[in-house]
Amino acid sequence: MSGILFDNDSWRLYRRHKGLLVLVLPGVLFFLLFNYLPMLGLVIAFKDFRLVDGVMGSAWSGLDNFRRLFGGADFPLALRNTVTISLLRLCFGFFAPIALALMLNEVRLSWYKRTIQTVTYIPYFLSWVILGGIFLIMFAQNGPVNQMAMMVGIEPIEFLTNDFWFIVVIIATGIWQAAGYGAVIYLAALSGISPDLYEAAVVDGAGRWKQTWHITIPGLIPTIVTLFILNLGHVLNAGFDQIYNMYNPMVFDAADIIDTYVLRRIVLMDFGLATGAGLFKSVVGLMMVVLANSLARRVSGGEQGIW
């Protein structure tokens, strides 16, 4: 070991770059302590973990935790809910920022465009504790949404306690929160389209519709495809912050996701099961992201992707 790391050539290399190495050392130690050491803690998933015995002292239990996880009713339900909510978000939410960006792109008054943009991405700036607090008031039985519904003659809806309506609220408020943020990314892609293309199109007599259809949308396709694939990669993240701050026991059947399940297991001090569920999510998530990334790279000819 020392022969490889400390032969004369390397030693000279270290000495020469001592200044840089000293600077990078605290950061590397930080990542080892706060990111890599906890990864070793994942062995808890294969142990009958007891707090008093510690990670090392607890007895091994093989795949017992995973058998309990998939043998019970709660985790399979949470897994199904997670995937369902993610896919619903993708179906209904994915095109909202694209539509918003295309519409903003057609606005000629720059102050108006700027104002709309500023206003629509405010929600992304705030935590789901705050936004959840606001929506729990707004969608309450006697809240303003139901009052508006009553004004047009609709019976009050149990938005927060009915499984179906709660998911509708989750999806809708999720779009409300993230559409403005998403639009900024697409607007950046739009600003990269060469103005020459539009000028040429005008010379050829193309109207606004034709310009949008033949220049703007094709210009967005690489970004759309990449973001779509990357979203698929995050299918096991159904939005913990939002759901935890808005759900209640009455809608667990539809809204309990992997992350909320893990948290409740921790509260019950069932660390083995919680870690097992977390490990399952991390490993499947890692595979999904790697897969999605290589797909994104292939589709865009190596240009897009996270790495």
């Binding site: 390397s10 290399l13 270290y14 770059h17 840089l20 190495l21 990078v24 950061g27 590397v28 990542f31 990111n35 890599y36 050491l37 906890p38 990864m39 070793l40 803690g41 994942l42 808890i44 893990v262 948290l263 921790i266 660390f271 919680a274 870690t275 977390g278 490990l279 999510k281 991390s282 998530g285 890692l286 992201v289 790697v290 996270i306 790495w307």
Partner: peptide, 25 residues
């Protein structure tokens, strides 16, 4: 010119896609 720059970057990047999770932390 930083020695082991590539491996160090990978060490840092990998934490973006995999983590120990709540209990170990």
């Amino acid at each position: 010119e930083l020695p082991y720059r590539g491996p160090l970057l990978f060490l840092i990047l990998f934490t973006m896609i995999f983590s120990g999770g709540i209990v170990p932390n």
